[in-house]
């Protein structure tokens, strides 16, 4: 089974985020960059499908500046076969979900695939729109928040279990299709030492957006970014005994927090 994985390199989840002086983005200096954790599920699923069918190729496609090659190599070290690196810093800087999806679509359209896997969202901007827009641009069905996937023997359809509010929904979809991976889909493997060594020799096709013939402009732009307000100090309720304290708590919840 041939698959494509759309992958984004994001700041490590433990990064202490600082907003840049212009207020339009984060300070990227000194950040540690990693593969988006949801994209790890996508890579793992692609590898497992390939292993199940004992044939096929996994191609990673990523839009990002020079540094993105590190995350691409991680995917190759996990076991992916080839990669397309859309390395275009100027485009990437301004790219919104639409522009990102347009670039990915242009890179994907010439590849052979039975399925495209994405993470459900990138953990940096959290937009969660790329898989859906990509589906629109490529004219493919999209199944989001997938936690289980079974592909038919003849690779013409798949049954996917999606996470929905309070439960699960099982959908059948014809292939090729796009699947966005949710936590629980699988347990991503670690890159092994032999995998890391092989990764260096695997082909990475580097392209700019103009190489791909993409001329779209982003439809949205970030006007302002701000950190969440600092957490307020906790409050210790006064009271002689448990009854008194419970009364004070009920009062605070009603009058101050306005929760009850």
């Amino acid at each position: 089974m041939n698959t494509v994985v759309c992958m984004k390199q994001v700041p490590d989840t433990e990064t202490l985020i600082k907003i840049n002086p212009e207020g339009t983005g984060i300070v990227t200096e000194g950040i540690k960059w990693v593969m988006c954790p949801y994209d790890e599920y996508a890579v793992e699923e692609a590898l497992q499908q390939k292993e199940k069918f004992k044939a096929g190729k996994v191609t990673i496609v990523s839009l990002g500046p020079d540094r993105a090659i590190e995350a691409i190599r991680t995917g190759l070290a996990m076991g992916a076969d080839t990669a397309v690196h859309i390395n275009d810093a100027a485009f990437y800087e301004k790219a919104d979900p639409y522009a990102t999806a347009a670039a990915l679509a242009a890179a994907v359209k010439d590849l052979e695939y039975d399925a495209i896997f994405c993470g459900k969202q990138a953990i940096d901007d959290d937009s969660g729109q790329v898989p859906a827009i990509l589906g629109e641009l490529l004219g493919l069905p999209v199944v989001t928040l997938v936690v289980k996937l079974e592909v038919s023997e003849d690779k013409t359809k798949a049954v996917a279990t999606r996470e929905v509010e309070g439960g699960h929904a099982v959908v059948e979809v014809s292939l090729p299709a796009i699947f966005s991976a949710q936590k629980g889909l699988n347990e991503p493997r670690y890159a092994s030492l032999p995998g890391i060594m092989k990764a260096k020799k695997k082909p990475v096709d580097v392209k700019t957006v103009s190489d791909l013939g993409v001329s779209v402009e982003p439809m949205t732009a970030i006007k302002e970014m701000s950190l969440p307000p600092a957490r307020q100090a906790g409050k210790i309720l006064e009271g002689e005994d448990a009854v008194e304290k419970a009364k004070a708590l009920a009062k605070a919840l009603h009058e101050e927090a306005k929760l009850i």
């Binding site: 991680t74 890391i196 060594m197």
Partner: peptide, 17 residues
Amino acid sequence: DFSEDMFNMILEEAQKF
């Protein structure tokens, strides 16, 4: 067959593991 990049990647993976 190695490079500094590869060493760094190996140690990233060691850290993660």
